[in-house]
Computed example of a mutant assay.
Amino acid sequence: LNRLESKWGQQYPIVLRSWRNKWENLSVYFKYPEYVRKAIYTTNAIEAVHRQFRKLTKTKGGFPSENSLLKRLYAGILNASKKWTMPIQNWNMTLSQLAIHFDGRL
């Protein structure tokens, strides 16, 4: 963090201050192996899901219940997942590491 701040601190002082204030939580990220960190910070898959959610909900003015929204999102993800063909690199190793770190929650 010190090296990062020496290089980028002048350009991004607010970001670096925020990272310093939250470093105890942020530093946990670096305890994971590199392939797990890559799966975490690679947001393309997450962005694709968010894009799909926006497409499903933007034309609908409202939903009668939370359950109806969840059903629509679930059906949309099932449909969209048929088009997802690119696997995440080292996913099996990543999944096993996440299962160890988050025992009982994965």
Rank of each mutant, 00 (worst) to 15 (best):
L1W: 03
L1D: 02
E5F: 05
S6C: 11
G9L: 03
Q11H: 10
Q11G: 03
Y12V: 03
Y12A: 06
Y12K: 12
Y12C: 08
I14D: 13
V15H: 05
L16G: 04
L16M: 15
L16E: 06
L16H: 11
R17M: 00
R17G: 09
S18A: 06
S18I: 03
W19Y: 10
R20W: 09
N21I: 10
K22Q: 13
W23K: 13
W23H: 13
W23M: 12
W23D: 11
E24Y: 12
L26K: 04
S27V: 11
F30K: 02
Y32P: 03
Y32F: 15
Y32H: 09
Y32R: 00
P33V: 08
Y35G: 03
R37G: 05
K38G: 02
K38Q: 12
Y41D: 07
Y41G: 05
Y41S: 07
Y41P: 01
T43S: 13
N44K: 03
N44Q: 04
A45G: 13
I46F: 02
I46Q: 06
A48E: 02
A48Q: 00
V49W: 02
H50A: 03
Q52S: 08
R54N: 11
R54V: 06
K55M: 12
T57S: 12
K58Y: 04
G61A: 08
F63H: 04
P64V: 07
S65H: 07
S65Y: 07
S65G: 08
N67C: 07
N67L: 11
L69T: 06
K71W: 09
L73T: 06
Y74S: 14
G76E: 02
G76N: 00
G76F: 02
L78Y: 06
T85Y: 12
I88N: 01
I88R: 04
N90Y: 13
N90A: 11
M93A: 15
T94A: 15
T94Q: 04
T94Y: 03
T94R: 03
L95S: 10
S96E: 14
Q97M: 11
L98P: 03
A99W: 05
A99H: 10
A99Q: 15
A99R: 15
H101G: 06
H101I: 07
H101E: 12
F102G: 04
F102D: 05
D103P: 07
G104T: 14
R105V: 06
